[in-house]
Amino acid sequence: MDNLAHTLIGAALGRVVAGRELPAAGWIGAVAGNAPDVAELLLRPNSWSPDAGVTYLVFHRGITHSLVGAALEIAVLAGVIGLIARQWGGARGAATSAPPWRWIAACVAVTVASHLYLDWQGSYGLRPFLPWSERWYYGDWVAIVDPFFWIVPLVTLAWGERRHWRPALVYLLALLAVTALVGVRGSGVVVWWVRLFTVSAAATGVIGWERHWFGVARRRRAAAYGLLVLVVYIGASAAAGTLAKREARAAATRRFGPDARWAALTVVGRPFHWEPLAASAD
């Protein structure tokens, strides 16, 4: 998925996993949620340039998005964050203890793993068993860009933020940006009911923050509710996607025979809609 979704999902997971134990669990989750892409950029920065062409498609979601790569990223990132936390605690005096290593490791591990899962659930997929296997795996459940993975975690993160003008301004600008991107810029791509949901969710986010539905004390619960909504959405998409793939396979078989090649690709801006493709074995 896109990096905004990885950032917001990572922040929400960070709060749920270690929100009570780590003072910056959301920030740690947001950073760790993008670790595979950051590692990829560090390994081969030219592959992300506008002139990269097919090089990007070949290299993207390579070893940094594999199980081996994720394990290394978790170990390195957890170690770096742990050392920073200890240095920070020492600089603030002996009274401030560094966060426990196990919670740092848990927060980083879950959010890095979420990156692989979010990439797998689309039609692009990933190659988890590199360097031993080049085979791609994909779920064909959710599009590579989906507004639900922006607005839902963003709203629940805002509900758990402290009541101060600075975080309020940041979240308000973020909600306005997402709403404008989906509702205005995406008018020709995103279906009407997704745009309506985005606007309604953004308004609910503002009301919930102003009325203090959750606040800092219950920010972990707010983030968990947002993730639960996405789990239900993914489950519904998976069920609908299974039916769509079954229909695509049947149509391909009728046209090209039992050896036909087929696919049912997700469509950006149109949840629960798949584009069937079919071709002969030749």
Rank of each mutant, 00 (worst) to 15 (best):
A248S: 08
F149H: 06
G89L: 00
G14S: 06
G208W: 01
R163E: 10
W193Q: 13
V68F: 02
A263N: 14
T198L: 08
L8Y: 02
P36R: 03
P147A: 02
V76I: 12
V110E: 03
A174L: 14
D282W: 09
Y117E: 13
G241R: 04
T64K: 01
T242A: 06
S123N: 12
A109K: 03
A217P: 07
A180H: 14
R211C: 15
G257S: 06
I81K: 02
V206H: 01
L67N: 03
A85Q: 05
A260D: 14
G257T: 13
G69V: 11
E161F: 05
F256A: 06
T179F: 14
A25H: 05
I81T: 13
E40A: 09
G215Q: 07
S133G: 11
W88M: 14
G205P: 03
A201F: 03
S237K: 03
F149D: 10
R218D: 08
V232N: 07
H6I: 07
T7A: 08
L176H: 13
D51Y: 03
R135P: 07
L173K: 11
I84P: 07
A113S: 10
T204P: 00
W120I: 10
I63P: 12
W274C: 04
V199L: 15
L72D: 15
S97V: 15
S187F: 07
W48F: 12
E73I: 10
V108N: 00
V152Q: 05
E21N: 06
L57G: 01
R185E: 10
G122I: 09
L227V: 10
L8A: 06
H164K: 12
G215D: 04
L8F: 06
